[in-house]
Design a protein around this nucleic acid. Structure first.
Lengths: 368, 368
DNA sequence: TTGAAAGCGCTAACAG
DNA sequence: CTGTTAGCGCTTTCAA
């Protein structure tokens, strides 16, 4: 096949500058390649096809790092939560990641353990300057005042119990109303002595006890955990036992008419466990209401009546608002956004008459 | 103070090229600034101090995007799991993020929903070429064969049930042994009829039934969820009821001597819920063993005996191995890594004699 | 030990 | 509609 012993030309395609190679192969400039790859408008169908073919042929994939530098944006958002292994945050995160991906954004996760210093880092964009274009932030240790001293140029959406100062959006359910509904549910079922455990400050100040003079608020539970529910149930058990302190010292106690509202399903589940080990029946002896509507509380024994926020909506709203901020060249005024919630009655307050999960109880997030 | 009405020099520090400004202020080149900021060796103590002062003065923070492009690495790793709201993955993720942060790496999260196509994307580095330096991957939908056809240049660590093909590391517990221990635990407690539910293939083939001829493997549970436990318990309930099918049709049934091993705590918890709603007692009527040692299973009613992998160790090992791969210029041979596990007996098999969590039961991850 | 300068690969003015 | 070109801000080779 070879003619003579002559020259043999070996064509080695060395990909040094991928973008340029594609441009060369397609016979266009790198500018046009960029336009095609990014789907920008002004490219004729003919050139687009030619460039696309060159892209496929060379297996060209644009270098995201270079793109980020040139564009001055990272295409990433950070989500900062206190604890990842808390079901509420895990479920929220799932929604955020889905929503962000749809918009072409990647999600960086960080976990602060509720440490105020760690949380503060993010208000200034962290040491990772420009690594993310915005932050969805669920503070725990941080004071409200810290939120005011932040670098306002970093797009921010705050989740949870804080309040916007006008430089960021805040999204959450109306927890005062929710707390009241929870205690009213208990009172409405005829429970005469009702305690709220986990976050006394808020309902205490804003319309809790006024409406329910019999509501002795329990200790703040700190981080909301199952072990926390075990630990913090003891103070709550005191009033439950008061009427019986002269009764028989051993054996299961009858303490009907009591109700406990926990500001977290997780704490409620810990409490459930403790109550069971003390031989107290739920709801016969003590009725229980939780908060968050995590899946665990749907399948516990008994299932726990709970305040259910629309987590999917919170996640989607948070992403939408953050991207709006990121995309806007002028400062977007901070909004206070209230998302809906509802009280889901289950066996922990209703007894057997409550529908069992897996039969008629619809999950609040249909996709799961 | 001013002499005459003469010139007044207004010095406006316009930060156009941050790095250069620092260099100018410190009277050095940008090269030296880079060395100081990155802690590279050859800088005299005097210049280092001078540069550092300039950095502080100007509030200089290097642009991560530019650094990434120049350095050709992103300083990020991706963690790809099927579901974020599954407690096992949430707990694992927490460990991975902590370990990665210590090494200066950020963590990108993605969730595949177990979709094989979505999972495959990551084996080729995804559309996000160069956005992450390596991947920790927990496949679900993907076949073992797909793992062999991947782009071997992307550093990869696989978690779970797959096997390494030599181009990546695989980390997991010895699930054959663990499954055997779980069923032996049940048999050792005198349970005569034992069923395993959730992942029949593996123990079936490799030493399961051979050792325990009475072990009828149940259906594969698909995604491991609590609702799954509810759904898939029905087939398992058939043999449980067989002996009683001529008995009284209503009321709680006595079915002592039965044991169920679930290849996931989550499924076990769903099953627990169903058993309770059927009036079956655990462990008196049915003993339950789960898998994963998620926190829920420590606080359920009753707490669930489970196979406990060392999740913290898995997370740390995964990060360590991945960074080793990322840092190595030559290909690192793929390793099969077995991490330890242990069976934790709880009330779901032991009854009241088992220690209750929150009293003597130590959490397997002390930091939580 | 430090300076000068050449990229990293892409984006986006600014022409044409 | 498309080509030319100047950066994005840092790292790093090569000299000094």
């Amino acid at each position: 096949m070879r003619e003579g012993g002559g020259d043999q030309v070996v064509v080695a395609v060395v990909v040094l500058q991928p973008g340029r190679d594609v441009a060369a192969l397609a016979g266009v400039s790198s500018r046009t390649v960029s336009n095609v790859v990014n789907g920008y408008a002004p490219v004729s169908e003919a050139t687009r096809a030619r460039v696309q073919q060159a892209v496929d042929e060379l297996g060209y994939r644009p270098n995201v790092l270079a793109r980020n530098l040139a564009a001055g944006r990272s295409g990433q958002i950070a989500v900062v939560v206190p604890y990842l292994d808390t079901p509420y945050f895990a479920e929220l995160l799932q929604g955020i990641i889905r929503a962000a991906r749809v918009q072409g954004y990647n999600v960086l996760i960080d976990q602060t353990d509720g440490d105020a210093e760690h949380e503060k880092l993010f208000l200034s964009g962290g040491s990772q300057h420009l690594l993310f274009d915005g932050v969805i932030f669920s503070p725990l240790g941080l004071a409200q005042s810290d939120l005011s001293e932040r670098d306002a140029s970093l797009p921010l959406v705050v989740l949870g119990e804080r309040v916007s100062n006008g430089t960021f959006d805040h999204i959450g359910i109306d927890d005062v109303t929710a707390s009241r509904e929870a205690t009213e549910h208990l009172l409405g079922l005829g429970r005469r002595r009702v305690a709220a455990i986990g976050r006394p400050a808020l309902p205490h100040r804003r319309g809790g006890p006024a409406a329910h003079p019999r509501l002795p608020f329990g200790p703040r539970a700190g981080r909301h955990t199952r072990p926390g529910g075990v630990r913090h149930l003891h103070p709550a058990l005191q009033p439950l036992r008061r009427r019986h302190r002269h009764g028989p010292p051993a054996g299961p106690r009858r303490t009907s008419g009591r109700g406990l509202f926990f500001y977290s399903d997780l704490v409620a589940l810990g409490a459930l466990h403790t109550l069971a080990s003390h031989g107290l029946r739920v709801p016969e002896d003590v009725a229980i209401v939780g908060y968050d509507d995590i899946e665990d509380a749907r399948y516990s024994n008994p299932p726990v009546t709970t305040v259910s926020p629309d987590k999917k909506l919170i996640a989607e709203t948070a992403v939408a608002r953050l991207l709006k901020r990121i995309g806007s060249s002028t400062p977007v005024p901070g909004m206070e956004i209230r998302t809906p919630h509802r009280l889901i009655p289950r066996a922990s307050t209703m007894g057997r008459q409550a529908p069992a999960p897996g039969t008629t109880d619809k999950p609040s997030a249909p996709g799961r």
